[in-house]
Design a protein around this nucleic acid. Sequence first.
DNA 1: CAAAATCTGTTGCGTTTGTAATAGTTGATT
DNA 2: AATCAACTATTACAAACGCAACAGATTTTG
Lengths: 149, 149
Amino acid sequence: MSDDDFDLNMFLPYLLNQAAEASSLAFQQIYKDRYGMLRTEWRVLFHLGLYGQLTASDIGARANMHKTKISRAVQKLTERRFVARARDAGDRRLEHLTLTAKGRAAYAELHAVAQRYDIALTADMRPAERDMLRRALVKLAKVRPEGFT
Amino acid sequence: MSDDDFDLNMFLPYLLNQAAEASSLAFQQIYKDRYGMLRTEWRVLFHLGLYGQLTASDIGARANMHKTKISRAVQKLTERRFVARARDAGDRRLEHLTLTAKGRAAYAELHAVAQRYDIALTADMRPAERDMLRRALVKLAKVRPEGFT
DNA sequence: CAAAATCTGTTGCGTTTGTAATAGTTGATT
DNA sequence: AATCAACTATTACAAACGCAACAGATTTTG
């Protein structure tokens, strides 16, 4: 059964998923426990906190998230008064999203946690390693299925 | 709104998720289109293909997968005759799982695809980069939430 | 300017997931 | 030996997801 030189734990898609899951866990605990948010919701929150007013499509394009996920996340965040919606006067298909005061407060705290957490995750790496890791991940995040059958 | 020096796209849990998703897509297409499998199912298939006979718990421990996911994946794979189950004679709680001939064939093809795919993903990296990336990811995959509030 | 095509965002529906409860088996305790 | 605790695996139920269909608004085009 044991194969030549293939190691499942070194298979990049698998390894990346394991690393992503493990490294997300502690942060997930925090936004879940403190704010009852899902992953989709903190992502929307962060996009609005970082980039200011955006539409749902903007967020979808930036975050690579399906529009229905965003629609539902925005609905939840709006119900809970983290986010405010405003129809565009010129093009009434568009809805501009912004953080409320409550949303900005939540963002401010989670943003601080995220910064500390990221530093903790890479604490035992040398700066060159950190940079190389991030560069490699950015490249992998841009991979698009074309070119492989 | 725009914050100091925090870049969401460089936040490791987020970046890792993006990289994991993007790099999994093309492979996912293949096991989905050719064998109608889900992610949980090819993982179980690969564990049995690589390590031989295992129990559901074994797979759960190795793959860091929840037992209900495995239970359902095994059920699907058994229905489709990729996997065979056998109760342990000594301890009748245990069920030993193995690949059928059909399962071995599917594994053989997907295993070959995975190898080629992994090579393609890292084609533009130098060997030193590849090694460092994998080492860093292995470390991150082992991170456990303790130590962060 | 009317019809068709495109765009934004939502909803319905079946599938997949996670949590908790469960059945069945074995081991430990007394 | 009887009870209790621990373990393997499954199931029930609600939450979350993905896809396709949809409504409403705008742009294109013939």
